[in-house]
């Protein structure tokens, strides 16, 4: 099993195979399942993601039981139709997909955790935008998920992917780094550029705290996935342009782990500090759960 980013990049260069292929081979070996079974499992995850994006972007959208989140993917969709977005239509399409997915999650709909439910919008955000922009077929989209997942495995085994142990940098930060690396591959970049994109994306979200209001995966989680998707695209573009990270990817992952462990408990998914601790955050919590909590 690949334990470090540098190992998988070296192997990809040596064998002249894309990272996605090495991860598919690794999965077949680890699980004992046939290539076809492994492929179809990922296809099912892709279909789940597509359904969530579509559900959150159709009609009036979806709304959570608390009313704290919902309907904003539709606002973005309507805004895009006017054609005056500041950051560009593709960027806002990625943001719309990301928000749609996390609105579905907050409304207790069906999603695919990538790597977590709180960060489930980041990868679909960019993937379904790239599908249109790069005219991707299903095979390419499934490969995108294998590359992203393989990078996530290395992150999870060397650092953290849970907000309670690593803050939001471990969730949306990891998702964004995984997405950046996979976007580079799908756009024709090299494995080394994927590694650079991962390092840049992770560095840019280092220190991000997990501070959900009332402990709900709604605020700020839904909008955090917008920045996860946007950051992934920026990092991928920078890596494709030839920009490099001074700190190697594996060391960025180690840094993420250390920063996570240094974060106070109040900023690690306890609903105590950060935005959760603001007067408005506390008032919402009291309104939802009563004053005794």
């Amino acid at each position: 099993m690949y334990n470090h980013i540098k190992e998988i990049v070296a192997d990809a260069e040596k064998t002249e195979k894309p990272i996605s292929e090495l991860i598919i081979e690794q999965e077949c070996k680890l699980s004992g399942l046939s290539r076809e079974k492994v492929w179809n499992k990922m296809k099912y995850n892709l279909e789940t993601m597509r359904a969530a994006v579509s559900k959150g972007s159709t009609g009036k959208g979806v709304f959570s039981h608390t009313g704290l989140t919902g309907g904003e993917a539709i606002k973005i969709k309507n805004y895009r139709e006017k054609g005056h977005t500041l950051s560009g239509d593709f960027m806002m399409e990625a943001v719309q997909n990301a928000v749609a997915t996390n609105e579905v999650n907050a409304a207790m709909g069906v999603i695919c955790a990538t790597p977590t439910a709180g960060s489930s919008g980041t990868l679909p955000g960019i993937l379904f935008m790239l599908e249109k922009k790069l005219d991707l077929n299903e095979e390419q989209m499934i490969r995108f998920l294998f590359t992203a997942g393989g990078m996530g495995l290395i992150i999870g085994n060397n650092a953290e992917i849970a907000g309670a142990t690593g803050g939001c940098q471990a969730e949306v930060g990891s998702a964004s780094a995984m997405g950046a690396a996979a976007a580079v591959e799908i756009a024709g970049g090299t494995p080394a550029q994927s590694s650079q994109a991962l390092a840049i994306a992770m560095s840019n979200l280092l220190g991000l705290v997990c501070d959900p209001i009332a402990g709900l995966v709604e605020v700020p989680c839904v909008k955090r996935n917008a920045i996860g998707a946007g950051n992934a695209l920026i990092a991928a573009d920078m890596a494709l342009a030839g920009c490099t990270s001074v700190i190697p990817a594996d060391e960025c992952i180690d840094a993420m782990k250390k920063v996570g462990h240094q974060m106070p408990v109040s900023l690690r998914e306890t609903g105590i500090g950060g935005l959760a601790g603001t007067p408005t955050g506390q008032a919402i919590k009291a309104k939802i759960f009563g004053k005794d909590v």
Binding site: N105, F146, L153
Partner: peptide, 14 residues
């Protein structure tokens, strides 16, 4: 890899 891409689940938190 399906520990990372997956599970398919009902929200809100993995």
């Amino acid at each position: 890899v399906f520990d990372i891409i997956g599970p398919v689940m009902i929200g809100p938190s993995s």
